[in-house]
Amino acid sequence: MSNGSSRITDFIKKALFVDFIKGLAITLRYNVSRSITLRYPDQEKWVPYRRFRGQHTLNMDANGRELCVACELCAKACPTKCITVIPMEDDSGRGIADRVAKVWKVELTRCLFCGYCEDACPTRAVRLGRDYELACFDLSCATKNKEELLQPQSIPETINGGFVVKAKFVRSPEGIKVVPDLRMSKKRLL
């Protein structure tokens, strides 16, 4: 501002609305650029990466035997003590060993999804899966027991994740669900 020439350029810039035009160019560029809105839950849904830590799942081996041997290491490792494991003996071939879990339940209200149970598991039975819609109308769904956790999750392990797919919003008496269309006809990166 001190010397004359910068004042003159400043005046010319003001008179020709240089800064205004720069600003307008920026907003125009944004106006024509693609929107980043994720239209969840109506039409689109985010499919997380495999590393995502959502609701727990209990895995089975290729023959359909439970991998969990009820060693209780997950319960020991859990910082919030939200996993309860009660072992029992079973040699009918339900599990991979003759020791299976009689009860394996997790309280999702206390779980902080740290993944220590995954790390502790010697048989890779417990995994944190990719289901993340955990809201419900009462506390009944906050505790997940073994039978529910053995069910396969909505996104199969083969899908890599990390994109947005078309989804359908389903409203039923049991609650609401967002069903992703995993054929991925219209997937896009976020």
Partner: peptide
């Protein structure tokens, strides 16, 4: 709509 698109949103859609 213009507001939405300038903010890189969608504006009214429903």
């Amino acid at each position: 709509k213009v507001a939405g698109h300038i903010h890189v949103r969608l504006g009214p859609m429903r």
